[in-house]
Nucleic acid binder design. Structure first.
Lengths: 349, 349
DNA sequence: GAGATCGTGTAAAACGTTCTCTACAAGCAA
DNA sequence: TTGCTTGTAGAGAACGTTTTACACGATCTC
């Protein structure tokens, strides 16, 4: 077959093909695609018919050159965190019926890696960004948010360039302390991640949680019993923290943590030291992930409504992307205590 | 300030800016960016200097119109699956030092949702795709793979259009059966996901696992004791399967599952029925996720080396993307049994 | 009935890259 | 010298969309 006349095998159907087929201009097709103003019902019908006949799909990269890419980027440090999965589900559910695609960047924990990922998303011309507790310096986020609609989840620092969704972590800490105190505990320790202020976030979830814990302890007149131990939110981080706390001079009778997975590390430490949960030690997690509900685990935890946070973030973001709102807003969710088998009254001393 | 002369505030630095600044053509800059042939050392140096001076970053969407986007897409059904997280880590680690960005699409379980996500990735002109056990009809994948380099993880069906990375699930099943038989078990049930062949995958992980289980049982002369129960890989799916199996006329003394999380659902069912693990029931998971290792859980499981699978997949994919290989290949990993506290000899009857 | 307005459609210019040619100079062989 | 090769650089088209500016006819307003 003559090479010149043969249609190239794998060529995509383009907007030009659609336009030619329908006997209209590409501009008209573009308008139909974007539900833009100035197209008659007849035109719309004709064009959509041809689109489905030809199986046309807009080329997102080409779109990105002028208009939107219809892509939302979600940044998170690690997919292992089950709480993030809840948030993600909320985002996806909210956007399921829309024409937006959600793409996730799992950047790792390093600030530089995260910054790289965020830049990648911007370079790919994503329409909007949802950043889950970014570890990147705050200025970097503000710069990004200045040019791309952005929602920050987790950090309590508000800004007028981006929207925020947070959980009232201080209230959550209070719920836990109240619960433990009502059971009779007084030596209640908190295990939380390092709340580094170095990157200019003043109110990370960890810091707010810690503040809430200290306030609650003070409220109960237990300031002298308050103890905050820093550890990574991982099984191993929890284990080390547990070992340190539980072999101390006067070990706590109850430990609350900022993440379920860390609580399970403490569980392991307790186990190793011959302590039983909850008889010898009451243990409380945070986020109420699927982990906490597992039969062998039965961990008392604080529910953050991750799904709702995710869908709220998505809704807020789309408002901004589509220009329906031009002022920043913050959404705060209220946490709830979920009591399970890992907490009980302390043993009489 | 005169609006016409004022530089537009948020304009990106483009390749043209770099070219102008360096006093060269855009083509030259492009060549430097891509390490293409035909650039003198002096030119390279001059251009890279200007690039970093101006903080230029290539516009990925624009690149996508002609060449690569330097983006790798990973499709998975659900981020909750800890095994996928292992794979993902492998992929990321392999690509960390490269110029490629990994973006994840969490598509959900429906074939149509997954197909939509795959199409999104193709529309975004991604350079290569890693599909983790896609539920999409096989033909759809073959079509995609014909135009975009693709690696399929999980399905054992080989094809000459895409590469594959699999674990020898039949061997894994054999390891488990051997282990349980050596402990004295004879009534060993398998709980696995539905291995629907409807979408033309003939050798999904579930099917291969199930076949391996049946073969192993036969090898031990236990064909009559073999029992396969289908359930979703979730806590709830496992729970229901457990309830059915454990309340049957002659309940199994050991249950192996195709996923750790399902094993934990069975744990819950056993718990509810007053059965203790491992005394009354031996339980084996699959994938050896972080879940299995948790202190309160201690689940015997089969390790699939997810990290290695991920990095292998990434390496294979990049070879194809960069045209260093033009024939399909399959990589098979060998599973390993990890014994923990959830298996022991059956009670004497 | 003149002008203004409105609704619908198109032509053509962007957008920021890559890629295919072509040009040119320098070096080399005859 | 002539012709050939090689290495380097640039001009300009192409990629598939959106957007801007404008044209045209129909309807409205006075």
């Amino acid at each position: 077959m003559d090479r010149a006349t043969a249609p190239r095998q794998n060529r995509r159907v383009t907007i030009t093909d659609v336009a030619r087929h329908a006997g209209v201009s590409t501009a008209a097709v573009s308008k139909v695609l974007r539900n833009a103003y100035g197209v008659s019902p007849a035109m719309r019908e004709k064009v959509t018919a041809v689109i489905s006949e030809l199986g046309y799909r807009p080329h997102a990269a080409a779109r990105g050159m002028r208009g939107r890419t219809y892509t939302i980027g979600v940044l998170l440090d690690n997919v292992r965190n089950a709480f993030f999965a809840d948030i993600l589900d909320g985002v996806q559910d909210e956007l399921r019926t829309s024409e937006y695609t959600v793409l996730i960047g799992a950047a790792g924990f390093g600030p530089e890696e995260q910054a790289r990922t965020i830049r990648s998303m911007v370079d790919r011309q994503m329409d909007g960004l949802i950043l889950i507790a970014p570890g990147t310096p705050r200025g970097e986020i503000l710069t990004t948010a200045a040019s791309t609609p952005t929602v920050v989840i987790g950090h309590h620092d508000a800004a007028d360039s981006h929207d925020s969704v947070v959980d009232a972590d201080d209230v959550g800490a209070g719920l836990v302390v109240d619960h433990l105190v009502s059971l009779g505990h007084r030596d209640i320790a908190l295990v939380s991640a390092h709340g580094t202020k170095a990157n200019r976030w003043k109110r990370t979830p960890e810091i707010v949680l810690s503040d809430g814990y200290l306030e609650a302890m003070e409220r109960h007149g237990l300031t002298d019993h308050a103890r905050v131990h820093h550890a990574a939110y991982s099984d191993d981080g929890g284990f080390k923290a547990g070992m340190t706390l539980l072999t101390a001079d006067r070990p706590p009778t109850a430990v609350m943590t900022g993440a379920d997975v860390a609580a399970l590390g403490i569980y392991r430490a307790a186990h190793e030291l011959g302590l039983r949960i909850p008889d010898d030690l009451s243990l409380v997690g945070y986020n109420n992930t699927a982990l906490a509900a597992l039969a062998p685990v039965q961990l008392t935890s604080v529910d953050q409504a991750g799904h709702t946070m995710g869908s709220a973030a998505a809704r807020m973001l789309i408002e901004r992307v589509e220009g329906r709102r031009d002022r920043a807003m913050q959404t705060t969710m209220t946490p709830r205590l979920v009591e399970r088998g890992s907490t009980t009254a302390p043993r009489a001393r």
